[in-house]
């Protein structure tokens, strides 16, 4: 330090200024790193490192006492794809996502439009719609377990009044997945409604009046003005719903445990089963990597394609 200050005294005055500027710049960048540090550390520990170790683990065979685990390239992936359960689970999840996403979005939008209108007891209506979201997943699943109970449950009690036979909703492959789908839509629609409700409140009432004067009816207004202006929200909700659809596991523990005959087995439940019930970590890791690739592709699609077509204000 002493040497540095000595040399700066000999140097022309412009040089000392540069020293100060450099010092300032260093301080700024240090400050920036300090601000980024908490997120950087947490993301590294809880996202980056697990992702890399998962990817690493997916290339190694399952180790036993006799045969230690060894690098086997893409073997885990090929055996996964040749497993018939893989295709059942992927198909289940595709069906589950394909039904729950559009329905929960449509119902959320309809509920938001209604809860945004000036109706009596608006606060109560909004609260009622939001209740399913506030319930813990496990509690919600238990409530629906009671609804679905064959013979005694709420649904069978009502259908019984019309002389219909009792149905084992969760116990037979034909209805089990659909029953889980209904629970998810019930749970998610209220959550998504909140986002739509917030978005609707940013749309000025002038737009509705201007289109009314221009002769647009309610339907035309919705199609040409309202829905395009809600697209940012729809994209956000869609991505969330998609991620939720590969993340669903809690309901399955309570409602079906993936059965009967794998009818309600979804990806995350299957991964859990492989990893912690059959202790087949490498295959679980391979499946996790496949999901990460899929979600990454969706994210790229959203940024590259969707965002260009959506009007963000």
């Amino acid at each position: 330090m002493a040497a540095a200050s000595g040399s700066s005294q000999d140097a022309p005055p412009g040089f000392t200024m540069d020293q100060i500027a450099l010092y300032q710049r260093r301080r700024q960048s240090l400050y920036g790193w300090m601000l980024a540090a908490p997120a950087l550390i947490l993301l590294t520990i809880f996202a980056l490192i697990p992702t890399v170790t998962t990817l690493w683990a997916s290339f190694y065979s399952k180790g036993t006492v006799r045969r230690p685990s060894a690098f086997n390239g893409l073997d885990n992936y090929t055996s996964l794809i040749h497993d018939p359960a893989f295709w059942t689970v992927v198909w289940n999840n595709a069906l589950y996502a394909g039904i729950t996403i559009p329905f929960s979005i449509a119902i959320a939008l309809a509920m938001a439009l209604w809860a945004n209108a000036s109706i009596p007891l608006r606060g109560v209506v909004r609260g009622a719609y939001f209740t399913p979201t506030m319930l813990p997943m496990i509690a919600a699943a238990n409530i629906w377990l009671f609804f679905y109970t064959p013979g005694l449950g709420v649904i069978d009690s009502i259908t019984g009044l019309f002389g219909l036979p009792p149905v084992n909703w969760l116990g037979q492959p034909q209805t089990a997945l659909w029953s889980v789908i209904v629970v998810t839509i019930w749970k998610e629609a209220g959550f998504f409604m909140i986002f739509y409700l917030a978005a609707l409140q940013t749309i000025p009432p002038d737009f509705k009046e201007a289109s009314a004067i221009e002769g647009a009816g309610r339907f035309t207004y919705a199609r040409r003005v309202l829905i395009p202006l809600l697209m940012p929200t729809t994209a956000f909700v869609f991505i969330n719903a998609l991620i939720n659809s590969v993340k669903l596991i809690d309901h399955l523990f309570i409602l079906t445990k993936g059965g009967p005959n794998n009818a309600t087995k979804l990806i995350l439940y299957w991964i859990w089963e492989m990893a912690f019930a059959y202790f087949d970590r490498p295959h679980a890791a391979a499946m996790t990597v496949l999901i990460l690739l899929f979600l990454g592709a969706v994210a790229i699609f959203q940024f590259r394609v969707l965002d260009k077509r959506i009007h963000y204000r």
Binding site: P204, F207, E209, A210, E214
Partner: peptide, 17 residues
């Protein structure tokens, strides 16, 4: 829309998208 008139709003009410 049945009154045969047009209107300019204070906010202009232009559709942003």
């Amino acid at each position: 829309s049945e009154r045969g008139l047009s209107m300019v709003f204070q906010s202009y009410a232009l559709f942003p998208h």
